[in-house]
Design a protein around this nucleic acid. Structure first.
Lengths: 209, 209
DNA sequence: GCGAAACTGAACTCATGGGTTCAATGTAGT
DNA sequence: ACTACATTGAACCCATGAGTTCAGTTTCGC
């Protein structure tokens, strides 16, 4: 039981969940605490019983959502740990999974929230990217470094390779999804993954023409 | 004279400029019309004499800033019209210019504003990207197509090449500049341009190993 | 069952800010 | 000089919403 005083923990989760939902739907300024309380199925004073202000409520809600998104994204890199003989195919699968994780409703809303409130909460990025290996680029760089060691990729700067892979993959999303407004069809995501891996392998693959 | 009734036009420009400055500094919700009037050196009723709402004020201010940014960016592509014998060098120069145009204060603020208010003003993107050739990717694709025709690049999909070039170039900015919060040193921008062109040429250059 | 804690609903305070009104003051064309 | 209109400053109205208070109710530990 530890810290639990019965329903306290459930309510807290409900509040954080409802808060992110409402913030995602309306943005920080437009979202009012009463809406959040309603969404969480809770009375307004209960919200203030768990969080001191609207600001810390926002902070905790965004932190929770970011952490969840980050672990999902890093988890999507798993197939790279042991690719079979078809490296391009595995890369393509990972690319497709990353694209889906970056284009779902919650991720787009999260990105919008980060961009819009980064000036009001300058420290909120520290929580999202985290330290050391909890960074997506870093995690990917680790995988690519091992692939380079085993001769499947050019043995050059794996950090740069990871950065460019993610840039190639995720950069086009901004325009294509209209800043996360429009949903992208799964076949379009698939084509995007294919094109990314194709270009990436031409630039970073073992040169076997 | 046409529409001009003396100082009307000057005041209008001052209002739009002040509006963008304040919106960029504080965001849409936090910016109050009185601040904008002060920034523009104008009384509050004068603002409402030119613009009906705060919303249309925002719309016009962002439209003006976006148009200015877009023409500057497309203008930076000019050297590609007639590259000398050093295609990679010219590409690198253009890349560096584009990076500087995408990382200045106004551009970062504009991007933040677009991301944060895209849900409240869903049509605002139409003005920014514009129609046909007023799109940066399209303009770059045109240049690359001519380079491909003259045998300087692989004769494949120039639209894809342009999209990937911009993705490689601008994608890393998001993380490196902390969503536009942190200024990036000019040498770092230079390195980024170099790395981008290097990878791009490996993937899209005439294969002459 | 008892008591302590959390929870609820409703009403309240108070600050902020969009938008308007108005009388007074330029200011440019004729 | 005269007219018409833009501008100004200050005050005003009103909606919204953050955060609080409180009396009453639920719920769990014991």
């Amino acid at each position: 039981m530890a810290t639990s005083t019965r329903g306290r923990i459930d309510k807290r989760q409900a509040i954080l969940g409802g808060a992110f939902a409402v913030f995602a739907r309306l943005g920080y300024a437009q979202a009012c605490v009463q809406d959040i309380a309603d969404e969480a199925g809770v009375a307004k004073p209960t919200v203030y019983n768990h969080m001191t202000d609207k600001a810390t409520l926002f902070r905790h809600a965004v932190e929770a959502a970011s952490q969840a998104a980050l672990v999902a994204r890093i988890g999507a890199l798993a197939p790279l740990a042991d690719p079979g003989d078809d490296l391009a195919g595995v890369l393509e699968g990972v690319a497709h999974a990353l694209l889906r994780l970056h284009t779902d409703e919650r991720s787009c809303a999260l990105k919008r929230l980060l961009y819009s409130e980064i000036t009001r909460f300058p420290d909120i990025l520290d929580v999202v990217t985290g330290s050391g290996p909890h960074h997506l680029t870093q995690a990917l760089a680790d995988r690519l470094a091992r692939l380079a060691l085993s001769g499947r990729l050019r043995a050059a700067d794996p950090d740069l390779a990871a950065e460019q892979f993610l840039a190639l993959l995720l950069g086009p999303l901004e325009t294509r999804s209209r800043l996360g407004t429009r949903q992208i069809s799964d076949t379009e995501l698939h084509d995007l993954a294919r094109a990314t891996v194709c270009t990436f392998m031409r630039a970073w693959g073992r040169n076997t023409p």
